[in-house]
Nucleic acid binder design. Structure first.
Length: 571
RNA sequence: CGGGGAGUAGCGCAGCCUGGUAGCGCGCUUGGUUCGGGACCAAGAAGUCGGCGGUUCAAAUCCGCUCUCCCCGACCA
């Protein structure tokens, strides 16, 4: 490609809309432009990278036996009503009515549509296993789009859906996808972790997230420093350190005046105690009425754990009015003493003695509260979230916490959708059974952003060879010099003949401008043609990543470049 | 949706407090000189000052409403 014929508008300055490196660089390198909040244009240079990533994905998906399809972006409400997600999905689902006043939505994901295909077309166990995938636009009307294409409202996703006759088959299909995902992200040059995750709105029995480690990641990942355990903090488990309470050291309870001190921070500072000596009392509404939940001041309740512990579908932190009704005090002064609703406590509360709680009275807290003496706990349970410093649930060793970008997510759906939508088949015995499903997504734009987030330096992007929009940039220092121009033209054609993807900077720009642009757009190899070297029959090859420079004889350049590309792809 | 910030030329910004008819840097156009790390000189083009309404002789500037964007919190590939 000739630069002069290309559309690559680079920016010298950072647009004020961009905060994180990948977003800034994608704008500066002329890859994307914002249309409106969370909606982006991909310009030719950015689209080339998209296509590179897509190609890798297609190769690996096909290799894993999946078949590519293309499903519609606009979907009828009926399907979503069948799966009950029409009500469950919330405002992220963009809904509209067509001219006949029929309810429709823009596909945020395609379980309903694919299950509809399955229920209509799959009748026999002989038709499975089956795995269908597509690369297509999704729309999720995110509350707050952020970081460019990292969290866009409209985005490209590769989504795959597997269909199996039983759990065993589904497990095999799932594992195939996990393996394919690992190959895909490895080929993209990404450093990632596979972690246990929440299933959220997609549902199903369990799921894994593929996390690219990056400081700007929005996810927090817990992993063991010794064994292979890794999970999203939202679901991370941990080993309890068992302690016993010193029941003989009870001090006498004391009511103290704490004017306007409501939060853990305020109360602990005011009373000069540490958050570990305070017990938070939170009131939740559940299917069976309200409950009080106790956790240590520095801990947080895991709503997921609480939900499963209580076996409740509805779970919500009680509103201010409800809290007043139950505790007879404004929010911020709740405590376990004298409550008439069930009191659940996290396991870490059990060993505590002489702690601080709210007094259920405006502007008062209690000091030296003790269980058994001052109030009774209905049940101790595992109710809190992972907290930094907690130990690995598998081996009990130290854990670490990292930030990550979720680039892929695999779900074991089980029969959630096939049951809701009646996708069944006849097994070998002629019995009707529900199809066991899985679904698997990769955010394409996000993968790209994550790659840049992982590969950049002060001068710009440093594309890994596998996803680089061009493998080589050919840069004559001054195109007006006949010798340079002619040699460049020859080299350009020679490289193209070898199917090497080359961007030929034939612009009449000063060397500085060309060098800066070349660095910014991050093409892995740069061939520089300068007058001095060329008169000696030499050209320069520079590696973007290392800055390493080698001088090569003009005749050997193409061979050398081929060699270097092969080397970069491999490593 | 709650909290914070910003909308002035393609990009980055100043001007607003204290009203007087819009400016700087980069980019763009033309000509010339340069040419291995964002060159220089000269001449130019380009702005409904986000929108609507109000106050005023006069509004980018003051007042009201509104739209959009960005950042911090609850969702997700």
């Amino acid at each position: 490609m000739r630069y002069s014929q290309y559309f690559l508008p680079t920016l010298k300055e950072v647009p004020s809309e961009a905060e994180v490196p990948s977003h800034q660089l994608m704008l500066r390198a002329g890859m994307i432009r914002k249309l409106t909040s969370g909606i982006y244009n991909f310009l030719p240079f950015g689209f080339r990278v998209i296509q590179k990533v897509e190609t890798i994905i297609r190769e690996e998906m096909n290799q894993a036996g999946a078949l590519e399809v293309l499903l519609p972006f606009v979907q009828p409400a009926e399907l979503w009503q069948e799966s009950h997600r029409w009500e469950e999905y919330g405002k992220e689902l963009a809904r509209f009515k067509d001219r006949h006043n029929r309810d429709c939505c823009l596909g945020p994901t395609h379980e309903e549509v694919i299950t509809d295909i399955a229920r209509k077309e799959i009748r026999s166990y002989r038709q499975m296993p089956l795995n269908l995938y597509q690369i297509q636009t999704k729309f999720r009307d995110e509350i707050r789009p952020r970081f460019g294409v990292m969290r866009a409202r409209e985005f490209l996703m590769k989504d795959a859906y597997s269909f199996d006759i039983d759990e065993k088959g589904a497990d095999e299909s799932y594992q195939k996808m996990v393996d394919a995902y690992c190959r895909i992200f490895r080929r993209c040059g990404l450093t990632f972790k596979v972690v246990e995750a929440e299933s959220g709105l997609i549902g199903g029995s369990f799921s894994h997230e593929f996390m690219v480690l990056a400081e700007t990641g929005e996810e927090t990942i817990v992993s063991c420093t010794q064994c292979s355990y890794a999970a999203n903090v939202e679901r991370a488990e941990f080993k309890r350190q068992i302690k016993t309470a010193k029941r003989d050291s009870f001090k006498s309870i004391q009511k103290v005046f704490t004017p306007n001190q409501r939060t853990v921070e305020e109360v602990t500072q005011f009373l000069r105690v540490s958050p570990q000596d305070l017990v938070k009392t939170l009131i939740f509404e559940t299917d069976q009425g309200c409950v009080a939940v106790l956790v240590r001041g520095d801990h947080e309740i895991s709503e997921r754990k609480l939900k499963s512990a209580l076996k409740t579908h509805h779970l919500q932190l009680a509103g201010d009015e409800k809290v007043e009704e139950i505790t007879h005090a404004p929010k911020g002064f709740a405590g376990p003493l004298g409550l008439s609703i069930p009191i659940l406590a996290d396991l870490d509360i059990e060993p505590m003695v002489n702690f601080v709680t709210g007094a259920n009275e405006r502007d008062y807290h209690f000091l030296n509260v003790n269980m058994g003496r001052d109030f009774e706990v209905s049940q101790f349970m595992d109710l809190r979230k992972f907290f930094p410093g907690d130990l690995c649930p598998i081996c009990g060793r130290e854990t670490r916490v990292d930030k990550g970008i979720e680039v892929g997510h695999t779900f074991k759906l089980g029969t959630k959708y096939s049951q809701a939508m009646g996708a069944t088949f006849l097994d070998e015995q002629g019995r009707e059974r529900e199809i066991v499903m899985g679904c698997y997504g990769i955010g394409i734009g996000r993968t790209l952003a994550a790659a840049i987030e992982q590969y950049y330096d002060k001068d710009g992007i440093v594309f890994p060879m596998a996803i680089a929009p061009f493998q080589v940039i050919l840069l004559p220092v001054n195109i007006k010099i006949g010798l340079l121009r002619e040699t460049s033209e020859q080299l350009y054609h020679a490289l193209k003949d070898e199917k090497i993807e080359v961007l030929y900077d034939d612009r009449e720009e000063t060397p500085g401008v060309k060098f800066k642009d070349a660095d910014l757009i991050g093409i892995p190899l740069r061939i520089t043609l300068g007058e001095k070297n060329l008169k000696k029959g030499l050209v320069e090859i520079k590696k973007r990543r290392t800055g390493e420079i080698l001088l090569v004889k003009k005749e050997d350049v193409v061979e050398k470049i081929k060699e270097m590309i092969a080397q970069e792809m491999g490593g």
